[in-house]
Amino acid sequence: MSEQQLRVVFGLATPLVLLGAWWGYVVAFKVPPFVLPPPDAVLAEVVRLFVDGTIWPHLGHTVGVIVAGLLIGSVAGFLLGVLLGKSPRVERAIGPYLFFFQTAPKIALAPLFILWFGLGLTSKIVLTVSLVFFPVMVGTVIGLRSVPANLHSLCAILKLGGTSKLVRVELPSAVPEIFAGLKVAAVQATIGAILAEWLSGGTGLGYLMVFAGTTYKTPLLFAMVLITSLLGIFIYQSLATTERWLLSWR
């Protein structure tokens, strides 16, 4: 068998073996469904959620929080990253505080955000923004710092400086690092949105998980884990596709 064929076989076989083991274990040991539901029950639950439409308002809510948090957080992180990357003096002044804020566990801050911004959408978006912001900012700073010295010399020869240099040379050159930050941010945004919904409110995938957990609807909980993971992968992949398109010159 060629390497590619082997890869296909393993790609199909691995999940099948795992699912089989899961199913076999549940059936053989008669595990009650509220402890560990069989895979077919989880699948049935996923299908039910989509067919009767229960999922849509929750999914929409979560996607809304992720997208809003990702947008606001990335723009803010990018702008501050450009400021810090271009001005070492500003970085020395406010850099340490930003790092302090970043090291503080966000889950500890989450109740504070709810206290400040209420139980509604705002506190959820703020929590997501706080998670997204930092990786994008760091990516932008690193990207701007790693512009090759020769490109700086070229700009000096051509008397290219300021905004023109930033737009024509520095930012295009920093795109790979910025996207590395964005991809981390996308995963963080998903976690942030779920976490925020977990803590407060009555809609969203996170809320549905808490509901499933506290009411022992274990198949629903498993279905939510599956849907959330797929959502995270989808967001990550759409960013990765944009990156591949933007970085086709690499």
């Binding site: 090759p148 020769n150 490109l151 010399s153 070229l154 020869i157 051509l158 008397k159 290219l160 024509r168 040379v169 295009p172 050159s173 795109v175 010159w249 690499r250």
Partner: peptide, 27 residues
């Protein structure tokens, strides 16, 4: 004083990798 006064060729070919050859020369 202007960007058109000096032409410099570096030891390594310093090109902008995201631009085509024509756009690099036109830069």
């Amino acid at each position: 004083s202007s960007g058109s006064d000096i032409g410099f060729v570096f030891q390594e070919p310093v090109l902008l990798p995201w631009l085509t050859i024509l756009d690099n020369v036109r830069f």
